[in-house]
Amino acid sequence: MDETGKELVLALYDYQEKSPREVTMKKGDILTLLNSTNKDWWKVEVKITVNGKTYERQGFVPAAYVKKL
């Protein structure tokens, strides 16, 4: 869990989004888990830094590609 009590997951593999509802992740990324009720796709939040500014983006990743921490 992070400092706000949200559950975290670890990306076990790289994943490139294939639709606007998904998010890209790299092996080793730590993501915030938002919803894991679907056994195949989990909703996560990723933080992306571009030119020194951090953005948060929500989307789905394959559940088999992440592990709860």
Rank of each mutant, 00 (worst) to 15 (best):
E7Q: 14
A11I: 02
T49C: 11
E56N: 14
Q58P: 05
Q58L: 05
G28L: 02
L31K: 00
N38K: 06
K6M: 11
L33I: 03
W41N: 02
E22N: 04
T54C: 10
K18H: 08
K47R: 14
K26Y: 11
S36A: 12
L34Q: 03
I30R: 05
K27F: 05
I48E: 08
E45N: 06
V23Q: 02
Y15G: 01
Y15N: 01
M1G: 15
G52N: 09
V9Y: 05
A63R: 10
K53M: 14
N51P: 07
E22I: 03
A64Q: 11
K27L: 04
K27C: 07
D14F: 03
K67Y: 07
Q16R: 09
K18V: 08
L34P: 00
T37M: 10
M1F: 13
E17I: 05
K18N: 10
K39S: 11
V44Q: 00
V61K: 00
S19Y: 06
N38V: 04
A63M: 04
T37N: 13
K53R: 11
I30Q: 04
Q58I: 11
E3W: 04
E3D: 13
K53P: 05
I48K: 08
K26E: 05
A11Q: 01
V46E: 03
A63Y: 02
E22L: 04
E3A: 10
D40N: 13
V50C: 10
T54P: 11
L69Y: 08
P62A: 02
E7P: 09
P62R: 02
Y55S: 10
P62I: 02
K67S: 09
T37H: 11
Q58N: 08
K68H: 07
V9E: 00
K43S: 07
R57A: 05
L34V: 13
T32Y: 10
E22Y: 04
D2L: 09
T24S: 15
P62N: 03
M1K: 10
N51A: 13
T24V: 02
R21E: 13
L33T: 01
T24C: 06
K47W: 13
L10D: 01
M25V: 11
K6E: 10
D14S: 08
A11D: 01
V44W: 00
K68I: 15
G59Y: 02
K27I: 05
D14R: 02
E45R: 09
A64E: 10
E56C: 13
E22V: 04
V46N: 11
T49H: 11
Y55W: 12
N38A: 07
K53Q: 14
Q58G: 05
E17T: 07
Q58A: 12
N51E: 12
N38F: 06
V50N: 10
L8V: 08
T49R: 11
L31A: 07
R57Q: 08
S36Y: 07
V44M: 01
S19D: 11
K43I: 14
Y13G: 05
I30M: 07
V9W: 04
K26M: 08
R57P: 01
A63G: 05
E3I: 08
V66T: 04
K67E: 14
Y15T: 01
Q58R: 10
G59S: 01
L34W: 04
E17N: 06
P62V: 01
D2Q: 10
S19V: 04
Y55G: 11
L12V: 07
K53W: 11
P20V: 10
K67C: 13
V46G: 09
K18Q: 15
R21L: 14
K67F: 08
S19E: 08
E56T: 15
M1T: 15
E45F: 04
Y13N: 09
Y15K: 00
T37Q: 14
L8Y: 15
A64G: 11
V9A: 08
D2E: 14
R57S: 06
K6P: 13
E17D: 04
T4A: 14
D29S: 06
L69F: 08
I48S: 07
L10I: 15
T54Y: 10
K53F: 14
T24L: 02
K47F: 11
P20H: 10
A63N: 02
Q16C: 10
L31R: 00
M25G: 01
Y13R: 14
L12Y: 03
V66N: 00
Y15V: 01
A64M: 11
K26W: 10
E3H: 08
V66A: 02
V61F: 00
K47E: 11
D14H: 05
D2N: 10
E45G: 13
K43L: 15
Q58M: 08
E7H: 13
L34F: 04
K43C: 11
L34E: 02
K6A: 12
T37K: 12
V61L: 02
M1V: 15
M1P: 14
F60Q: 03
P62Y: 02
Q16F: 14
K27M: 07
L8R: 12
T37G: 10
K18L: 09
L69N: 03
G52Y: 06
N51Q: 11
I30D: 00
N38Y: 07
T54R: 09
R21S: 13
S19Q: 08
V9M: 03
S19H: 14
K43V: 14
G59V: 03
T49Y: 11
Y65N: 06
V50F: 10
W41S: 02
N51G: 14
E45I: 12
V61N: 00
A64T: 11
P20C: 09
D29Y: 04
V61H: 00
V23E: 00
E17H: 07
N35L: 08
M25W: 01
K6F: 13
Y55C: 12
Y15D: 00
T4R: 09
L33N: 01
K27G: 05
L12D: 02
I30S: 02
L69I: 15
Q58F: 06
L8M: 11
K53T: 12
K6R: 14
Q16P: 06
Y55A: 11
L31I: 06
G59A: 03
Y65I: 07
P62C: 03
M1D: 15
L12G: 01
T49K: 11
